[in-house]
Structure formats: structure tokens, C-alpha cells
């Protein structure tokens, strides 16, 4: 799950999931939600792309993943689904995109501000600040 946390200038998301893989998925869906995507009706065309990133910190993997999706948003593509695989130092995702009609909030980047992925009570949690 994710929820938006008040931030004066930017957008902050709190994400909480049962696994790291789900956290990455939820963060991606959170990003699509706050972007205010308005899909093209009757458009079933899917664009499939494989994404891979290697880094020795899960926080870097998360920010890179979100920044990849922000880059795709600039190309008028939004994520509808993804199959994610995470190892200790890599992220692999099969991504399914669709073209959108309109986006209501343009996000510049996911930031490292106070970023920490923590495990607490069997849940994986993080706060992500996005620059607008």
C-alpha cells in the first residue's frame, strides 16, 4: 500500500508492503497514481520493455526504478503492470506500458531525501520524496 504524506513543495509517498518486490511494485503504482494519469479510452496497445539495473543498495535500486518510470512518463507511457525480480544487488522487471491521454502532475525525479528502506514487524517500509 501507499499513501501521500504532506510536503510543502514536493510530493512524499509512504509505501509499505509485505516484501521488497511488492514494495517496488507499490511504489511504482503510487507514482502512477500521484501523476494523475488519464488513460486513452479504448486503447489496448501494450508496450513491453525489460528493465535491468545493478546496484549494491536496495535504496539505489528503488530510486533508479522510479526514475526509469518517470523517464517513460515523459515518453507518454505509463506502467500498467510489471513482473519484478530482485536479487541482493539487481532489479529485473518486465514492464507493461500503455500510452496515456493526459498527465496531471509532472514529476521531475525521485530523490534520496531521508531515504531508507526498513523492515519492521514483517513489513517493508519507506518514505520517498519526489521533486516536482
Amino acid at each position: 500500500m501507499f499513501k501521500e504524506i504532506p510536503h510543502t513543495a514536493d510530493v512524499c509517498l509512504y509505501v509499505e508492503s509485505t516484501s521488497l518486490k511488492n514494495l517496488f511494485y507499490d511504489a511504482a503504482i503510487g507514482l502512477m497514481t500521484i501523476s494523475g494519469i488519464e488513460p486513452i479510452s479504448d486503447d489496448n496497445q501494450l508496450y513491453i520493455e525489460n528493465y535491468k539495473y545493478i546496484a549494491n543498495e536496495k535504496e539505489i535500486l528503488l530510486i533508479e526504478w522510479l526514475n526509469f518510470l518517470i523517464f517513460k512518463l515523459e515518453k507518454q507511457l505509463y506502467l500498467v503492470n510489471s513482473i519484478i525480480k530482485i536479487t541482493k544487488n539487481s532489479l529485473f522487471a518486465k514492464c507493461y506500458f500503455k500510452k496515456y491521454d493526459k498527465i496531471n502532475l509532472s514529476i521531475k525525479s525521485a530523490t534520496y531525501h531521508n531515504l531508507q528502506i526498513i523492515k519492521l514487524n514483517h513489513l517493508i517500509k519507506t518514505f520517498i520524496t519526489f521533486d516536482l
Binding site: 535504496e59 533508479e64 523517464f71 515523459e74 521531475k108 530523490t111 534520496y112 521533486d131
Partner: peptide, 16 residues
């Protein structure tokens, strides 16, 4: 625009 955003994103990651 995206040019500056990407440069900042790239270095914010590298500088970790």
C-alpha cells in the same frame, strides 16, 4: 527540463 533533471538524478545516485 529533462536534461537538467537527468543530470541531477545521475549525480545524486553516483554521489551516494
Amino acid at each position: 527540463r529533462g536534461y537538467g533533471h537527468q543530470i541531477c538524478s545521475d549525480f545524486a545516485r553516483e554521489y551516494q
